[in-house]
Write a protein that binds this DNA or RNA. Structure first.
Lengths: 173, 173
DNA sequence: ACCTGAACACCGTTCAAGT
DNA sequence: ACCTGAACACCGTTCAAGT
C-alpha cells in the first residue's frame, strides 16, 4: 500500500488538472496540497516537465483504453470525441502541450493510434486524415471556436459519411 | 505618417511573435523594444489581452486574404495549409488562444470562414467538417505530432479525395 | 533521505508620483 | 498626456542548511 512519493505527486497533479485546469498545476500549489514546500518536490520529480510528461502518458493510456474494442470508423470517431469531451484537460495536454517523445515509454503513442489505423483498414494516409479530422473537430469544439448553437453532431455525421464512402471500396482481407 | 502609439505596440508585438515566439511577447520586453517601461504600456493598451486580441484580428484578416480567390475544395485546402505553415505563430494564436468574440470586429470570423463555406457548396455541416479536417492536420503538423518522415502531403491528398467525392454529387446553381 | 527558507530571474498589473 | 520607480502577488528553479 506504500505508494511512492513520486506517484503521489503525479496523482495530485492529475486531480488538480482535471478539477481546476492547467493554470492550477503549479509547483507551489502541488507542494501545498502534499504538505511540503515547492523546492521539496524536486527530491521526487526532476522538474515540472517531468510531471507534465507523466500526465501525458496517463492521458495517452486512458485514450487508448477508451478506444479499445472499437472497430468501425463510426465507433472510433464517436469514442474519440467522447473521451476528449470527458477529459478535456487531459486531451489538451496531449494535443497542445509539447510532447517529449524521448521520455515516453515505447508503444504508448502507437497504442493510442492503433484503433484509428484499424478503422482506416491499415491505410496510414487515411488513418492520419481521420486523425486530423477527429482532432480538428474536437479541438475546435474544446476551444469554443464553433458559434454558439452550432450543430456539431451534424458536422461529425457529415465527416464520417464522407470517410466511410472512401473506405467502402472492396479490399482484400 | 503619424502612427498612433497603440498601433506601434501591436506592430512590435507582431514582430516579436513571429520572430521569437509567444513567450517573447511580454509586457517588459515590449516596453524595452519601444523605449519605455512596462507600466507605461497601459497608457496605450488596456492590458495584454488587448494586444493578443489585436494580433488575432490581424491573423484572421491575413488568413482571409490568403484564401481570397480560392474556390475549389482542393485550392482552399492547399491555401489553408500554406498560410498556416507560413505563419505558424499567428495560426496558433487564433487556433489555441482564447478568442474574445466580444472584442472582435463583426465579420472578421465570417470572412475567414467564407472560402471554406464556398468550397463546401454552402453546406454548413460539410464546411465545419472541412474546417475540422484542415485545422486538425495543420495543428498536428505544427505540434510535431506526426512521426518524423511521415508523408503529410499524402494524408492531405487522401483527405481531399474523400471530401471531393462527397461534394461530387450534382447540385443546382 | 527528506524538508526548509532565502534567493534568483522572471511574470502581469496597479498606483502614486513626477514632468 | 505620457512616463517613472516601487510594489504586489505570482511563476520555476537552485542551493546551502537543517534534521
Amino acid at each position: 500500500m506504500k505508494t511512492s512519493r513520486h506517484t503521489e505527486v503525479i496523482d495530485v497533479a492529475e486531480m488538480l488538472l482535471e478539477a481546476e485546469g492547467l493554470e492550477a498545476v503549479t509547483m507551489r500549489r502541488l507542494g501545498q496540497e502534499l504538505g511540503m514546500r515547492a523546492p521539496s518536490l524536486y527530491k521526487h520529480v526532476t522538474g515540472k516537465d517531468d510531471i507534465m510528461t507523466a500526465l501525458q502518458i496517463r492521458a495517452l493510456q486512458g485514450q487508448a483504453a477508451a478506444l479499445a474494442g472499437t472497430s468501425t470508423l463510426s465507433e472510433v470517431a464517436t469514442g474519440y470525441r467522447r473521451w476528449a469531451l470527458a477529459h478535456p484537460r487531459l486531451y489538451e495536454l496531449i494535443a497542445r502541450h509539447p510532447l517529449d517523445r524521448a521520455r515516453l515509454p515505447p508503444g504508448v503513442e502507437a497504442a493510442a493510434a492503433a484503433p484509428l489505423l484499424g478503422a482506416a483498414g491499415g491505410d496510414i494516409d487515411l488513418a492520419r486524415a481521420l486523425w486530423g479530422l477527429g482532432h480538428g473537430l474536437v479541438d475546435l469544439e474544446l476551444a469554443g471556436r464553433f458559434p454558439p448553437g452550432a450543430n456539431i453532431d451534424a458536422a461529425w455525421a457529415t465527416a464520417i459519411d464522407a470517410f466511410t464512402a472512401c473506405t467502402a471500396v472492396p479490399r482484400s482481407g
